[in-house]
Simulated scan of single mutants.
Amino acid sequence: EDFRLKILNKIGFFEDGVEKPKKKEILKLINKQLVNVYCDWNNKNYGVELNTKRGHSVY
């Protein structure tokens, strides 16, 4: 089983009665939305990504 699904189950993310296939579908939708929020993992030049993040203000 996917570790992310285990974690979401453990913290009570899903309502009672949600079946495993539906949970996997929801997880896919979440992953689709969060793919590049913090880092472009498709970009192989991680140095550029890190420098970009360094330039962002924390405030």
Rank of each mutant, 00 (worst) to 15 (best):
F3D: 10
N36L: 02
L34E: 03
N42Q: 06
L8Y: 08
F3E: 11
E19Q: 14
F3I: 10
Q33F: 10
V48E: 03
L27I: 12
N45S: 06
H56P: 03
K44W: 01
E15R: 15
L29K: 11
Y38L: 14
S57V: 12
G12T: 04
P21H: 11
Y46C: 02
H56W: 06
G55A: 15
G47Y: 01
I7K: 07
K53V: 14
G17K: 10
F13D: 07
E19D: 14
G55W: 03
N31L: 04
P21I: 11
Y59C: 13
F14H: 09
F14P: 04
R54W: 03
D16K: 12
G12E: 09
L50D: 01
S57E: 14
N36G: 02
E1M: 12
K32D: 11
L8D: 08
L5A: 08
E1W: 04
N43S: 10
N9A: 13
V18A: 03
V35E: 15
K28I: 02
R4F: 09
V18C: 03
L27V: 13
K24Y: 00
F13A: 14
C39T: 04
E49L: 00
C39N: 02
N9E: 15
K22Q: 09
D16M: 06
L50F: 06
V18H: 03
L5Y: 02
Y59L: 15
K44C: 09
Y46H: 07
N45K: 06
V37T: 04
V18R: 03
F13P: 08
L5E: 09
E15H: 15
V48Y: 00
C39Q: 08
L5F: 00
G17F: 07
I7P: 00
G47I: 05
E49Y: 00
T52W: 01
F14G: 10
E1N: 12
K24Q: 04
N36A: 07
H56M: 11
D40A: 04
K28P: 00
Y59F: 10
D2W: 09
G12F: 09
K32N: 09
E25K: 08
S57R: 11
N45G: 05
N45W: 00
K10G: 08
K44H: 02
L34A: 05
L27R: 01
G47Q: 02
F13S: 13
E49P: 00
I30N: 01
D2M: 11
E25I: 01
N42S: 10
R4G: 05
Y46V: 04
G55C: 09
Q33A: 12
V18L: 13
I30C: 07
K22P: 01
E1Y: 10
N45F: 01
D2L: 09
N43Q: 13
E15A: 15
N45A: 05
L34G: 02
L27S: 05
S57A: 12
K22N: 03
K10I: 10
D16N: 11
W41A: 08
G12Y: 11
G47E: 04
L34F: 02
F14K: 12
